[in-house]
Nucleic acid binder design. Structure first.
Lengths: 214, 214
DNA sequence: CTAGAATTTTTCCAATCGGTCAAAAAAAAT
DNA sequence: ATTTTTTTTGACCGATTGGAAAAATTCTAG
């Protein structure tokens, strides 16, 4: 018997399903209230079980939160990983933007959980940001810089370019309520994501300068 | 004697100062942990006083939080209010971006408090978003559309333009930790805001299309 | 100096928090 | 059917929470 007093490693299919159910409920709660603002009771109720029962599957609040974060960061960076150095620069960036926007549309809770963690100062997350994340961004920034050197794209700071893509796309998940309020009832349908996609295409491709017919 | 059992309206100069001291401390705490994740004890300690003493000045947690939010939304929108329909479009927008960026640099806690509130779904804030905020944005969106009609600026959705300015500028306050991690030790000085300003100028003015010498 | 008001501290409370434990119940294995 | 294992429940614990009450202190005016 190992000395590890941990959550029963998922043997049964049922166990895995229950754990998934709990993580799903926890995502709901954590993404709204943050880690400290969420309670185990809340999560348990959202998952339709009692608190001790939930604690049978995850032995602490942290143990529910941590795997959520880990999983999310990973899928969150997938679109950036797929940025292809051998592709056409502008279409590559364009499709990166589109994929990030789709993630904000399809996984807003994940985006908000991530944002909550950043606002807290990302405790117990620092290392990942400075290694995994930084390495990936460094790599892709180099790719982008390569495109600039070839004259295929306007010269600019690739890091801030990536930041601006993150910011503009995630905004539609994290500030959803504000966006809906400002757009009003009529324009708050799912169509707002298509409008956003159109706008971001134009912004990143041409900016605001009036079209020159030179 | 009014029936309102409220916090002693600030008569003394000392009272006003203490209240300000508390709000300052509360801003620190709330901006990091959100409303539910913050405790009165934390705030009291940050303000250098005991919890009951703090409760002498503000009778509840909500009573500390609410005025902070109200004040922030107001100053937060100042730059947009100043967007001048009679000014030159591109410089107007450029200086709006710059001011928003400066606010992220100089008042990051305010930005984070606001972000925290949005993530929660902005309870007890809905009305303000749908009236004050929406009205202002509608007004300024009309101004921008006017500029487009005159051909002084490229045609695009003015609402999403405003969203993208909010997103890109506030990102440097709300995701500060991520930004620092990615930029690395060397580039995490205050200079990053100048880099950001340069980049955003280019993004919004010209986008990423390679400079045409047509 | 002294009465009165303003401020601060001490003590306390009920509710909620994260989490434990043993017993009950349900499933699975024999 | 019965034993064994897994899952669920109910009762409970110490710590922390938001907040009240009242005593103790400090400040201020006369």
């Amino acid at each position: 018997m190992s000395a590890d007093a941990e959550t029963p490693r998922p043997v049964t299919r049922i166990q895995r399903e229950k754990q998934e159910l709990i993580l799903e409920a926890a995502l709901d709660v954590f993404s709204q209230h943050g880690f400290r603002g969420s309670t185990i009771d809340q999560i348990a109720e959202a998952a339709g079980m009692s608190k001790p029962n939930l604690l049978y599957y995850f032995k602490s609040k942290e143990d529910i939160h941590a795997p959520l974060l880990a999983r999310i960061l990973d899928t969150w960076l997938d679109p950036l990983r797929d940025l292809d150095a051998d592709g056409d620069p502008l279409p590559e960036i364009q499709s990166y933007i589109r994929r990030k926007l789709e993630m904000s549309r399809d996984f807003p809770r994940e985006s908000r959980l991530f944002a909550n963690e950043m606002l807290r100062g990302a405790p117990g997350f620092h290392d990942v940001l400075h290694t995994e994340l930084k390495n990936l961004v460094d790599e892709k920034a180099a790719v982008i810089r390569g495109w600039m050197a070839e004259g295929k794209i306007a010269k600019c700071d690739p890091y801030h370019l990536i930041f601006s893509i993150w910011a503009t796309t995630q905004h539609y998940a994290d500030f959803d309520i504000q966006v809906r309020a400002v757009l009003g009832r009529e324009r708050s349908g799912e169509g707002r994501f298509e409008d956003a996609a159109r706008f971001l295409d134009q912004l990143f491709l041409h900016g605001l300068s009036p079209a020159k017919k030179a």
